[in-house]
Design a protein around this nucleic acid. Structure first.
Ligand SMILES: [Mn+2]
Ligand SMILES: [Mn+2]
Ligand SMILES: [Zn+2]
Ligand SMILES: [Zn+2]
Lengths: 138, 138
DNA sequence: GCCGAATTTGCAATAATGTTGCAAGTTTTT
DNA sequence: AAAAACTTGCAACATTATTGCAAATTCGGC
């Protein structure tokens, strides 16, 4: 059965063509995607606004998570397992390759805890590593 | 003598009113600033374009560093000591307060090294922690 | 201090990105 | 199958970013 359909159903979202399409794009892509990436790679044309709204819906539902960047874009990637609406559990490191520009979720590499100064109460932490990915390394 | 002037001189940049002004804003502010923040807090009006170009120049010179965010903005903060043109050494953790929205450079908290999968070569790493700052904590 | 060369600035035009209201279309529920 | 709930696309608008170029400023040598 349709994997994308399943994910939508599991998250209590209406099953629509647009949502399935965007979800397929995520499922097929290995790396993280920006709004622009999705707009480009959509076979059928999707309205920009629909993409904005769908990405927001997916983030809210815990289907995808955001990856901070330093270039006025937001990257999105599929959440693995346990994320729920209003409560993400993604705590893995993200790797941005400076050569091929791909952004990869390193699901096995957990963001380490750090000792903060007195009075600072952490809620969540993101870590982004830049460098050369294994494909580009050779 | 003028601190901002010194910094510009040390970095081989022309000393202009705009650059001094923007640098003063950074020197007086404790936290990180966005383009919009600077545009607002500039006493004399500065052209948006000048601000863009100045921020880029400062980043290139190693005067300020960028902080990744998840909301389509880039935050900038003064580099401490050893950053040079084309080679930043900022490796401290950044803290974003979810209450007061301030972003703080935690100069004493170093981004920990992580073990990456085989073939991945790190060049630099950024870590952003969200939570409650010491001011807002009580 | 003055002058020419080099750099920087502001403006205007343009592009890219993001938001909102609403009517029409689709999906879900009954 | 019909009603209710939700989603989509369009249009209009708002915000943010980029580029070329002429005018202004700054710098280095005199
Ligand atoms: Mn991820
Ligand atoms: Mn910093
Ligand atoms: Zn690569
Ligand atoms: Zn705070």
């Amino acid at each position: 059965m349709d994997q994308s359909k399943n994910i939508l159903k599991r998250n209590g979202l209406s099953i629509t063509e647009g949502r399935k399409l965007i979800l397929e794009i995520f499922l097929q892509s290995m790396g993280a995607l920006s709004h622009a990436d999705i707009e480009k790679s959509a076979s059928v044309s999707l309205d920009r606004v629909t993409i904005y709204r769908t990405l927001q819906t997916f983030v809210d539902s815990g289907i995808i998570h955001q990856i901070p960047t330093t270039d006025n874009t937001i990257l999105y990637a599929l959440c693995k397992d346990s994320c729920e609406a209003g409560h993400h559990h993604d705590n893995h490191v993200h790797f941005i390759c400076m050569e091929c520009e791909k952004t990869i979720c390193m699901d096995e590499v957990i963001v380490p805890k750090v000792q903060l100064p007195k009075g600072f109460e952490p809620v969540n932490a993101a870590m982004v590593v830049k460098g050369m990915c294994s494909d580009c390394h050779n």
